[in-house]
Amino acid sequence: MQRHFDEELKELHRDILKMGVLAQEAIYKSIEALKSRDKLLAQEVIKADDKIDELELSIDERCIDLIARHQPMASDLRFLTTGMKINAELERIADLALDISQRVLEIADKPLLKPLVDIPKLSVIAQNMVRDAINAFIKRDVDLAKKVLLSDPEADRLRNFVSDELVNDYMAKDPKTADRAVPLLLIARHLERICDHTTNIAEDVIYMIEAKVVKHHPEKL
């Protein structure tokens, strides 16, 4: 039977996809701003965050409205509750891109401490994970969601590598490098947190599709 509710769910789906695209764009631009030391681009990311926050509120409102009016069950209920969680994760991801942009503004006028190698690598992993998590949600693809979860250890490894390098090879040897090293250290941390939020999305997607809770239970994967 055709349901009007399905049309409303499709609209919600589109909005969450839009939220995902905006979050991906924010990460991409913040890293481009870092690489090219482009303060204007960093400011653009900061400014765009208001739009993402507004969209987050509107998606939340729409979910609550649909739950109140339709009292959904089973797969509809899982879709709506997952949609709300993914919405919040994407908003946090966009906030972290904003944090990266703020760090870029802190170091943009100073000489670069070292050539950027591992942070861009980490940013590629983060962007791919966000893209795959959103696609897993859109296409209801459990395998893709699992792939996202498997990417996280590499992100952790890279972040630890970046931190060790900045602390041991720069700050420990010359404390005066701290004002340029700490923002880079934080950027690596922000990117790693983005990956963590993305694994939350992947876990939520698996719950939405299979009603299986893998959060805190990796053995269930």
């Binding site: 039977m1 349901r3 509710f5 959904p72 069950m73 089973a74 797969s75 509809d76």
Partner: peptide
């Protein structure tokens, strides 16, 4: 069951 409880039946 899914179709019935979600109103698709």
């Amino acid at each position: 069951t899914e179709d019935y409880i979600t109103g698709r039946y």
